[in-house]
Design a protein around this nucleic acid. Structure first.
Lengths: 164, 164
DNA sequence: CTTAGTGCAAAGCGTTTGCATGCGA
DNA sequence: TCGCATGCAAACGCTTTGCACTAAG
C-alpha cells in the first residue's frame, strides 16, 4: 500500500505530464523543479517556503511562477490548498486519491494542526451523494482544544482561583 | 425545534451577556448593535457588509471594532468564520450547537457555496473521538463542480469538438 | 478612577496583476 | 513562428497595528 518516496515522486511527475499533455500546456523545467520541492515535504507548507527552498537549491523562479504553478497543481490534483487561518494558505501534496481525504484537528488556542487518518469515517463521507453536485474531494476540519493547551488552561485556572 | 427570529436574537444576546460577564469584559452598546446586524443574516456575510449595514442604520462603528467584535463572537461561539478562498473571510451566525455543523458544497469553478443539512452524517462525525483532543465543533467542505458549471462545461466541450 | 474598548489612519503582508521577455511545441 | 510561461515590480485589498480618546464598571 505504501510507496517509496522515489515511486511517489515518479508517479507525481507522470500525473503532471499527463495533465499537461491533456490540457495542451507546456512542460516547463520550472514546473517539474517545483514539483520536486513540493514532494520533499511530508506536512503542510507555505508558498514562501517553497520559494526559499528553490533559492537554496540555486534554482531561481519568481514568486509569481510559484503561485501560478501551485494553482496548476491544485487543478491537476497533486496538491491541496488549505485556508486554516486568514493570513496565508498552506498546501500539502496528494499522494493518491485517498491520501488527501483525511481530517485535520485544529487547536483554536495555539493553532497547531494535527492530521488524523480515519479510513472508516472517510469512506462514509465519500459515499455520500449531493444531488447534481459532482464532488471530487472533501476536507474535514475539527476545531477544539489540543491536549497541551487543555493542560495549560487547567493550570492557569487553578492559579487564578488561588490568587482570588 | 425551530425558533422564531425574535427568540433567536434574544437567545444570542443572552449568550453574549453571559460570556462577557464570565470573562469580565465590557457590555458596550457597539457589541450588541453589531450582534443585531449579524443576526439579520441567514447566510454567509463579509466584514465589509456588516460595516456598510451599520452605516445604513446610522450607527457608526469603526472597521477595527467590527473586526475585534467578530473575533470576540467567534470565541464566544455565536458566529463561525470560514476561509473558503484566500481573499476574504466569510462569517455565519450559529443559532444553536448543531446549526453550525452542516456541510458546505464549494464549486471549484465558480466558487459558489451551498449549504447542505445532513443530520445523520453530522451525528456520525460528531460522535467520533480524537484521543486527548477536545473537539468543540467541526466543518466539512466538499469540493467539486456544481450542476450549472457542469452543464456549461459540457456545452463548451461540445463546441470545441465541433470546431475541430 | 482604571483600563478595556473604540476610532482613525497608517502599515503590513500574502496575493494578484500588467507588461516585457523568453522559450516550449 | 506562435502564444503560453516566466520574471519583475507595482498594485491590491483584507486585516492588523499604534496611539489618542472615550466610556464601562
Amino acid at each position: 500500500m505504501t510507496m517509496t518516496d522515489d515511486k511517489v515522486i515518479v508517479s507525481a511527475r507522470n500525473r503532471l505530464t499527463e495533465y499537461l499533455d491533456n490540457k495542451r500546456l507546456r512542460k516547463t523545467p520550472e514546473r517539474f523543479a517545483i514539483l520536486d520541492v513540493v514532494f520533499s515535504h511530508n506536512d503542510h507548507f507555505r508558498i514562501e517556503t517553497l520559494y526559499q527552498e528553490m533559492e537554496e537549491r540555486s534554482y531561481h523562479v519568481s514568486r509569481s511562477t510559484v503561485y501560478n504553478t501551485m494553482e496548476l497543481f491544485c487543478e491537476c490534483g497533486i496538491v491541496r490548498k488549505h485556508q486554516f487561518n486568514s493570513r496565508r494558505s498552506l498546501y500539502e501534496k496528494v499522494v493518491n486519491s485517498s491520501s488527501g481525504n483525511h481530517l485535520h484537528l485544529i487547536c483554536t488556542e495555539c493553532g497547531k494542526i494535527r492530521e488524523i487518518k480515519d479510513a472508516e469515517l472517510m469512506r462514509y463521507i465519500g459515499l455520500q451523494r449531493y444531488g447534481r453536485f459532482n464532488a471530487s474531494y472533501f476536507v474535514l476540519y475539527v476545531y477544539g482544544i489540543c491536549a497541551a493547551c487543555a493542560k495549560r488552561d487547567k493550570r492557569k485556572n487553578k492559579t487564578i482561583k488561588i490568587i482570588k
